[in-house]
Simulated assay, not measured.
Amino acid sequence: MSNPADKHDPFDPFGIVASMGEWCCLLKAARELKDVDGEMMETMLDASATGPVPEGPEAVAKVHSIVNLMRSLSLDAEAVRQRDPETMQTLEAACLRCTQRGRCARELWAGTAADAYPEFCPNAARLDRLRHA
């Protein structure tokens, strides 16, 4: 059985046209990903506009995670920021250094973060203090 790649185009003996077609597809996909990434960054910046903007998209996503985790615990991040900005900065800084971002995102998405956060969150003790304050 012959493979389409085994057939040679007499007008393109080196496969340059086929390679260019594949390259164009990759460029198109890269542009689409860039557009999606840009839209996501704007969304995250809008959501975290209430405080100091960290550097880089990963930092913004992590700070957004602490806000979502606090929301799942019925804590108002904006109220904490206004009442005690140092505490909020400490929470954000710990979140920025966290190595469990994937798990945090999965737990938030699944709606189980409020129960599971003590197992992985570096802010667990601080959040518990806020919950019982």
Rank of each mutant, 00 (worst) to 15 (best):
C25K: 15
A133V: 15
G102V: 10
A5P: 01
E42C: 08
S74N: 15
P13N: 06
T50F: 15
M20V: 13
T112K: 10
L96Y: 00
T87H: 04
G56Q: 06
H132P: 01
L69G: 00
A47F: 08
N68H: 14
C24Q: 15
K34S: 13
D84T: 05
A47N: 13
R101T: 12
R83A: 13
M41H: 12
D9G: 03
A29C: 04
P118R: 04
A29P: 01
G51S: 04
A30C: 06
L33T: 11
C95W: 01
E78V: 13
R129D: 15
E92C: 10
G21H: 08
A125E: 13
D9R: 04
S19R: 14
A113K: 00
R126P: 00
G51E: 06
R83I: 03
G38T: 02
D9N: 15
V67C: 07
L127Y: 05
V36Q: 11
W23K: 12
H132D: 13
M44F: 12
D37M: 11
S72C: 07
T99F: 04
R71P: 00
E86T: 11
M44W: 06
L130A: 06
N3F: 07
P4V: 07
K28C: 10
Q89F: 10
N123T: 00
M40C: 08
D76E: 10
R103Q: 07
V63Y: 02
L91Y: 02
P54T: 05
M44D: 11
S48R: 03
E39H: 06
L130I: 06
T99Q: 10
K28F: 13
P122T: 03
R131L: 14
R103C: 02
A105N: 09
Q82I: 00
F14K: 11
I66G: 02
R129Y: 09
R71D: 09
C121T: 00
D84R: 01
A105Y: 05
D128S: 10
P52T: 09
T87D: 01
G15D: 08
A116M: 07
D9A: 02
T112S: 12
R101G: 08
R81N: 11
L26R: 13
C24R: 15
E78H: 12
R131K: 15
R131C: 15
A110F: 05
A110R: 07
A49L: 06
D115Q: 14
L45F: 06
G38W: 01
E55R: 08
A5N: 14
A5E: 14
E42A: 13
H8M: 14
G111H: 02
A79N: 02
